[in-house]
Design a protein around this nucleic acid. Structure first.
Lengths: 127, 127
DNA sequence: ATATGTACCGTATGTGCTAATGGTACAACT
DNA sequence: AGTTGTACCATTAGCACATACGGTACATAT
């Protein structure tokens, strides 16, 4: 399959990678068991840093789309296609929309929401 | 009452104003019906911009601490003291903490949360 | 006339955070 | 030996945001 990355795009590279691979799985271009290019190899092909590709792979692994098999490489997860439809993103979006709408209805400023949000997120990760 | 502003402080000026007026209400220095200095006058006294004072007043009005009466000036709200204890900020923080904790428990990355958050907020304000 | 609250246009500056980069290293597999 | 995934150290460029500023204007009150 063909994987490309648009450096000019506003969407982060690692996000682009994740989306493309997910789409490839959903369209059937990638089926369970198929090998994926290694992190280093893909990074070389795209002329980007290893870390960026590694980050995308880490996210895909969390969603059980791909499966790193020890040191033998990375492969498409058996339940990849099913797990593609489980869209964490959509659920996050729905919840956040609901919560933020409530805030704004109460008259809370965007600035205030942003500030508290950043603070809470840092607090939760720092600890 | 005396209102001062420390330009060197890291806390924004408008926040300083809000806090001082709130405190004056809680301590009883300002009681319902008391007139507040006009935006322009206070800005002149403190040698800061009108907008800064206006911003503080706008926040105080939202929290029902003060009450702008048309073009006759601004006065302390009847329920000012009660509304001082109602902290919108705390409620926002509590809700967001709960929501974000759920996300992180589900394995959602900070980056993903941030991206969706920014997107949702823009979506809700843009429209 | 004068003062009020409010609204709009704009600019400028500093700060903080993200994303992406580089390099190095390790253990385990072929 | 060569490759794999992973982890740590670090830095940098760029963007978005918050704050504060200036000016102007309007309708309405005293």
């Amino acid at each position: 399959m063909e994987i490309t990355v648009d450096i000019e795009s506003t969407t982060p590279m690692f996000t682009q990678l994740v989306m493309q691979i997910k789409q490839a799985v959903q369209s059937g271009q990638l089926v369970p068991g198929d090998p994926l290019p290694s992190i280093r190899q893909l990074a070389n092909d795209l002329e980007i840093n290893n870390k960026t590709v590694a980050k995308a792979y880490r996210l895909l692994e969390r969603d059980a789309i791909i499966q790193p098999k020890g040191y033998r490489g990375t492969f498409v997860h058996p339940d990849a296609k099913d797990n593609c439809s489980v869209d964490l993103n959509a659920w996050v979006r729905k919840e956040l929309t609901q919560t933020i709408t409530a805030f704004k209805t109460a008259g809370v400023t965007d600035s205030e929401i942003r500030i508290v949000f950043a603070d809470v997120l840092n607090q939760l990760t720092g600890v």
